[in-house]
Design a protein around this nucleic acid. Structure first.
Lengths: 141, 141
DNA sequence: TATTGTTATACTCTATAACTATA
DNA sequence: TATAGTTATAGAGTATAACAATA
């Protein structure tokens, strides 16, 4: 890896961290946390999953996922049911209103980012668009 | 903005948040926090600045910057001096060992990210490299 | 009055360690 | 013994509100 690459890595890291902090702080108080939204999105898309599966997917520890699920359950967005085969496990399922909440929360949460994207040039937007799948892959490695 | 753009924005946001969480949790316990490292880097590069200037630059609130500076001062990495012109303000200056700490901490902090970049193809790396300046700009808008 | 920095306080998110129930 | 989920606890990082000193 060249010196220029190392510098780029440092800038990438700092930018992701700063941008992440701003995205976290920008969301409305009543909206879902990033992890809550991410979990609910997966559940809406894929159906029931266990807490352990969700924790592995989100790269968080199991106790953190317990809290995330508890928050979603309080709002009536997920249901916890006995696992059909293994009584140690449970299944978490998105409830009927979850799909709409996902759509709405995502819209609100993206508002700040979408607004700031307006300030970018076409070339910058194109570069960003090309990098989005790479960032997505990097985030789940 | 097209529907595809909205979806891309959602993925970008989720990816930045998830990647940011992993980058935060990945650093060693004794290393500097992201904001501490960022502040120290600026001070090493630009010389003395006031807490207010640093807070605006990092997009954090002044009390948060006070804490960041206190942490750096405890480690002997910055010095707080009276401001030469305005006695309400102070100047924050990087000390002699700061430059080396910045280089070392950055190297450690980037290790996880650099290691994971190895898994990407040349095309993905090129896309990422092109997007780094855009992400940097977005982070400081 | 307005501005700068600080102190006091609280909140969100995540982590580790220890516990319970089941396999 | 090993695994899944939970509870208890702690820590990092940031925010808002209130305060002191200075402009």
């Amino acid at each position: 890896m060249s010196e220029a690459d190392r510098a780029a890595v440092a800038v990438l890291r700092a930018s992701v961290l700063k941008l992440g902090r701003r995205l976290r702080n920008q969301r409305a108080d009543e909206s879902l946390s990033p992890t809550q939204l991410s979990v609910l999105t997966i559940l809406v898309a894929r159906g029931a999953m266990t807490p352990g599966e969700l924790a592995r997917h989100e790269k968080v520890q199991p106790p953190s996922m317990t809290r995330v699920i508890a928050g979603l359950e309080e709002r009536g967005l997920v249901r916890r049911d006995p696992h059909p085969e293994d009584r140690r496990q449970i299944t978490v399922t998105a409830t009927e209103p979850a799909a709409e909440v996902v759509a709405e929360s995502r819209k609100l949460g993206n508002a700040w980012l979408a607004a700031h994207l307006e300030a970018l040039s076409d070339e910058e937007l194109a570069a960003l668009r090309a990098a989005v799948p790479v960032l997505e892959r990097l985030a789940q490695l």
